[in-house]
Write a protein that binds this DNA or RNA. Structure first.
Lengths: 254, 254
DNA sequence: GATATTCCTGCATTATTAAGTAAAATCACA
DNA sequence: TGTGATTTTACTTAATAATGCAGGAATATC
């Protein structure tokens, strides 16, 4: 294995697990501890990580980073989420996906009528614990950490037993011809199951997500009923979506 | 765990609960008390905290606010939870129940080895999202708001497909002859399913819960393997439990 | 004031690192 | 293709750092 390969592998591991040990790296990379130390020393000098006795740590501690990221509310996402709320009707059973936009949706759900929320996200569930008008159903299964949601066979099986009036998806890539797509295959499958069980598919996406595509396809654009986005979106792109039967909702500007 | 990791964890705990004890840190961090003392001494020299006999305190006056905000952390429950941590072994699959004591357990799980956590509580799940060494499985189902946990037929079905090395239950009533009991029938059934699937049953209960009984029986005391409690518990009561084969663990005082 | 914790000091043990050197691989250039 | 320079890696040894343990000192608790 070449030096730059090792370096990127070390950095990948670091961001994945938050710490690396020199001794372990030596085994994992198949080189001597000396080489690992030289690598770590180099990466430290390049400010790519923080060298400490016994191994190395990321520059900013992951937890803090996440907390900050989590506490700061993106106003754009919040506006998109707010614009989607009128689509919820009394007595419905809706699914709310994981992701920051959907979390915003969860934080702003109506309190003046009753409905049921199903979610694969522990964060969304936690947010809804104290809404007395909401019947909350958690989807079970292995929690996929990067997306903070339950997914996989168990989750899919549970989804297939539920019929949703609508599902609210915080998409990460929506393309006119390629449809909805996402970076992880299991995530794609679980989202596809959800869509299969939903009367209406409602996607929440800021202009940054439109016209993009990712690795694993979830469904074609035709399956989508609503797209809630913002006024920065390209009108041509939006008309392409409209041609495929998607009802477009633009959120307020401020 | 690397030294700087310990340091940031100590500081994080400090800002969360407003005080740390050397002896507790030793358990939480998996190192000797000497090492903890050296850590505290270092952090004190770096003006990151104030060292005091028995532990350490935050420096800033804003800690007053912090303490107010996080006053909900019951130190008694935290100590009981800490005493249960050594019962977790590498590679195990454990279930962590809902409830404040179990939430404390979740907040203090070891980070230096891998294991799997299954939980019906969105709060526990949210807490564990950032533990990279923990494989997290959420139990799905209707969320029972008063207990903040998934329960019912769907949940029970999912439980029956999993075998737990041990389950950690934050009991609300444990009586020598009546066993474990609880106020809601569905909760009782779900907990019974969990116990059925567990190799070891570990109960966490402050002295306030012992000798009490509630409406719906979960299981007899004989099914319980460990009772982790505090030194305020009535010794006679404890010996009655011990007679039924329960291993009693008393948490540290203070 | 007695007792029990908690703390500090020195020391032994272990793990980790640094420095120096040699072998191997890679590269530059004829 | 061959030769020497350069880089990269591995090995050895000495130094350093981190940790845990055992005692006596300090501190808190009753």
């Amino acid at each position: 294995m070449l030096q730059p390969e090792r370096h990127s592998k070390i950095l990948a591991l670091l961001s994945q697990v938050g710490r690396v040990y020199a001794a372990e790296l030596s085994v994992q990379l198949g080189v001597s501890e000396d080489t690992v130390r030289r690598d770590l020393k180099l990466l430290d000098e390049q400010k790519q990580l923080r060298r400490v006795h016994g191994g190395a740590l990321p520059l900013q501690h992951e937890n803090q980073e996440y907390r900050e990221r989590h506490e700061e509310v993106d106003p754009l996402k919040q506006r998109v989420a707010l614009a989607a709320i009128p689509l919820i009707k009394e007595g419905q059973t809706i699914l709310i996906d994981s992701g920051s936009t959907c979390l915003q949706l969860a934080m702003n759900l109506p309190t003046d009528f009753n409905f049921t929320v199903v979610t694969p996200s522990p964060l969304v569930a936690t947010q809804l614990i104290h809404h007395n008008n909401i019947e909350l159903i958690m989807l079970g299964g292995k929690v996929f950490k990067p997306a903070v949601m339950a997914l996989g066979a168990t989750t899919n099986a549970m989804i297939r037993k539920i019929h949703f009036d609508s599902c609210f998806l915080g998409v990460c890539a929506l393309h006119p011809s390629q449809g909805l797509s996402i970076g992880h295959i299991d995530e794609a499958e679980t989202l596809a199951s959800i869509i299969e069980q939903s009367e209406q598919v409602i996607t929440l996406a800021s202009y940054l997500k439109l016209g993009k595509m990712s690795t694993h396809k979830i469904c074609s654009a035709r399956k989508i009923d609503y797209l809630v986005t913002d006024s920065n979106s390209d009108p041509k792109l939006l008309s392409l979506f409209a041609e495929q039967g998607i009802d477009i909702k633009i959120c307020a500007d401020r």
